[in-house]
Amino acid sequence: MKPFKHYDVNTLDEAVSALQNFAGKAKIIAGGTDIVGMFKDEVFAERPEALINIKTIPNLDYIKEEDGMLKIGPLALLEDIAHDELIKGKYTALAEAARRTASPHIREMGTISGNICQQCRCWYFRSPNNRFNCIRKGGEDCYAEEGENRYHSIFGNVKDCLAVNPSDTAPALIALGAKVKTSKRVLEIADFYEKEEPKKTTVLDDDEIVVEIQVPQPAANSKSKFEKFAIRKSIDFPIVNCASQVEMDGDTVKSARVCLNAVFANPYVAQKAAEYVVGKTLDEETVTAAADLALQDAKPLTKNAYKITIAKSLIKKTLLACK
């Protein structure tokens, strides 16, 4: 790696002020499993000057129920979330998503805040030494459109960028109705992702950091489920993943949330599927129709229409599991 500056901070305030000092030219490092890779590959068109290490801030790795919600500290490790009995029992989709993220070692290092903030895995964007100066880096073109797009978006572009969000935990948190508390505000997690500007993954300002994940307690008659499709059963980022949470009223669905990821620039809330199942029983026919509706708007590229089929399947599987 090329040299850069590195600062340890003791408090969140210090982290924020360090970010302010660098006015957009510093990044936070927590688990480091994403940012270190990008530094190694010289992915950035303009490389950040400094990393601000927040692992030195004490007591930010908590997992607790408080004020009627699950609160997760930004430094909580994915491995701990995956094996936490409380999360496994009540917030099942999140535990499953954490468990299916990357590899055991990455989960022992990677944090929940890092996982929801991670950059896309588009291989044009990630090509070392900024070989493709794509839209996401401020360039002119998206190279995936006419190139190798087997893993890219099936729901169109954001300002021509076709990269997808690769997080496994994000769709689970969206299905669970989580909020992200930042150093400035509290956001619905679905609103946490940047919708307009491909140069940014999240809406976080340059001097803003995630300070807590808040997940409301699920209703008594609800279940949640996460499914992931990838080539390998470990290590891989998702080709498509999906999380659903369903609240039942007797045999019928009272409310539902369904979220796909790795299909669009942001986690893709499958609103039509969720609305369709309300008031119905969760049988094969219902979930199939819901899945078809959810993918109605899909616009596959030259090489990724298969992802539509997979996305439908995952919607069906997660919904049925919530019965």
Partner: peptide, 21 residues
Amino acid sequence: DPKTGVKLNANLIDYKVFTMR
């Protein structure tokens, strides 16, 4: 990449060597 001939998966994340699972 079909246009430039740049190898897109020259790393062990995108080039998939199978695991124990």
